[in-house]
């Protein structure tokens, strides 16, 4: 009765010389979930994503995406996914619209221009859409990047550290975007080193540590694994993030508003 999981990984291993990056990763991700793979730098998150997106071959173990084996059915896997890598993979010399059209053409979509215009509108980029991406802020680049990943309606989207290097405002923009993705029924595998990001976005969270999954469950599950919360009374100070957002927000404490498009 169980439908095919979006992603199924069993005993995945990968080494670079003497460095054993993945030492037997097991993971199942159901369809329609936002799944966060949490881990510190060097934990193997990007390696896992690269194997799942057919950019890298595993040394051992198996992995399927959308029911297709990443090693033997790489083409079918590529037809089912899209990758938003660690750095915004956007062509800076082209405009946002041209970037979107490029991907739509490569994915053999009808009406690439219409698809581009629709996505520009959805990501509040219509006005900036005909400017070179080189003139964009980090948050806008990421939005273009994610918009490019949606073309062709892939059933699984990989977001590898989508907010690393972004300022807090841009990070909130990206979070908003990711939440909207999941509403559309897409499976999202998100890697992050920020606990808060996993907490904000994910239905389920797995912790990857030294090449193994050491915890896996909902936020509530993970919380239950630890000793019960201690009650302490502490004066609630605004965090630096609260202060930063209060001062810089141009939209009255609604920092994630998509109208905060930077002009340069």
């Amino acid at each position: 009765m169980n439908p095919t999981p979006a992603i199924e990984i069993a005993g995945l291993t990968k080494s670079y010389g003497d460095v054993h990056v993945l030492q037997g990763v097991d993971l199942t991700i159901e369809k329609g979930n936002i799944f966060a793979l949490l881990g510190s730098n060097g934990a193997g998150k990007t390696t896992t994503v690269k194997i799942l997106t057919t950019l890298l071959k595993a040394d051992g173990g198996t992995a399927t995406v959308n029911g297709f084996d990443v090693a033997t059915q790489a083409d079918d896997v590529r037809g089912s996914i899209s990758l938003t890598g660690q750095f915004a993979a956007v062509d800076e010399i082209l405009t946002a619209r041209e970037n979107l059209i490029l991907i739509a053409k490569l994915r053999r979509q009808k009406n690439p221009g219409a698809i581009a215009d629709e996505l520009l509108a959805r990501f509040s980029l219509t006005e900036a859409g005909n400017r070179k991406v080189a003139t964009y802020s980090g948050g806008m680049r990421r939005r273009v990047d994610i918009a490019m990943s949606l073309i062709g309606n892939p059933s699984v989207i990989f977001l590898d550290e989508p907010t690393t290097g972004l300022d807090p405002e841009a990070r909130l923009e990206v979070w908003q975007t990711v939440k909207e993705l999941a509403d559309g029924g897409t499976t999202v595998l998100l890697t992050t080193q920020y606990l808060e990001e996993a907490e904000q976005l994910a239905d389920r969270i797995a912790i990857l540590h030294e090449g193994r999954i050491i915890a896996n469950g909902t936020l509530a599950d993970l919380k239950a694994m630890f000793p019960p919360a201690k009650k302490e009374y502490v004066e609630k100070q605004p965090s630096l993030e609260d202060i930063f957002l209060a001062i810089t927000s141009k939209s009255n404490g609604k920092p994630a508003s998509t109208t905060t498009v930077k002009e340069s």
Binding site: K50, L55, R78, S82, G85
Partner: peptide, 13 residues
């Protein structure tokens, strides 16, 4: 270095 290669390589092209 900019990631465009990874993007293209993960697409059905």
């Amino acid at each position: 270095n900019g990631g465009m290669f990874d993007r293209f390589q993960s697409m059905p092209i």
